[in-house]
Amino acid sequence: MTYYYLASDQKLGSGNGTIGIAMSALELVSGFDYPIQVENINGLEKEWELQALLQYIQNHTAPYKICTIQVANLLNSNRVELKVRSRSKVLLHEIAELEQLLLEEGHLLTIKKVPRFT
């Protein structure tokens, strides 16, 4: 089964329970720049689940001018080690469609929040 794992350069909270987030022991997995802090054990496929993930990310980053969150969809098995196979990056304010958060197995997405100048 694949799970979503989240890491950040800031401490992640437990959220509001909408998408089944569980706090994880700080674990550094190859491919991540930061230790994994949170895992989603239910998977994320439906539009409302992706919306809840985006809301969680926006709530987490709100107090910071600059912040990075990494999200990966990885196979969780005691026979296979967690492994990132591909990576991509996006700025938080450029996430226009929820499908950008729908990751294939083995994909890691780095989301950066930076100041916006309009």
Score class of each variant (00 low, 15 high):
residue 74 L to G: 05
residue 61 T to V: 05
residue 69 I to C: 13
residue 36 I to N: 05
residue 113 K to T: 13
residue 9 D to H: 06
residue 60 H to K: 06
residue 98 L to V: 14
residue 63 P to E: 13
residue 53 L to Y: 03
residue 79 R to Y: 11
residue 23 M to K: 11
residue 95 I to A: 08
residue 73 N to H: 11
residue 61 T to G: 11
residue 100 Q to I: 14
residue 63 P to Y: 11
residue 40 N to D: 01
residue 111 I to H: 01
residue 114 V to G: 01
residue 82 L to S: 02
residue 34 Y to Q: 04
residue 22 A to W: 04
residue 1 M to H: 07
residue 40 N to F: 00
residue 88 S to G: 10
residue 82 L to P: 08
residue 116 R to M: 11
residue 27 E to D: 03
residue 17 G to D: 03
residue 50 L to R: 08
residue 24 S to D: 08
residue 76 N to C: 13
residue 26 L to M: 09
residue 31 G to Q: 05
residue 85 R to H: 09
residue 46 K to D: 10
residue 84 V to Q: 11
residue 57 I to E: 00
residue 77 S to W: 09
residue 108 L to M: 14
residue 34 Y to C: 04
residue 78 N to W: 12
residue 92 L to E: 00
residue 10 Q to V: 15
residue 37 Q to C: 06
residue 5 Y to R: 02
residue 74 L to W: 07
residue 79 R to H: 11
residue 74 L to P: 04
residue 85 R to W: 06
residue 57 I to V: 13
residue 85 R to E: 14
residue 33 D to H: 13
residue 67 C to Q: 09
residue 88 S to H: 04
residue 9 D to A: 12
residue 21 I to T: 09
residue 5 Y to P: 01
residue 16 N to Q: 12
residue 24 S to H: 09
residue 86 S to P: 00
residue 62 A to S: 06
residue 1 M to I: 07
residue 46 K to I: 13
residue 100 Q to L: 14
residue 108 L to S: 01
residue 9 D to Y: 10
residue 33 D to C: 08
residue 118 T to D: 04
residue 100 Q to N: 10
residue 39 E to W: 00
residue 16 N to K: 15
residue 115 P to R: 01
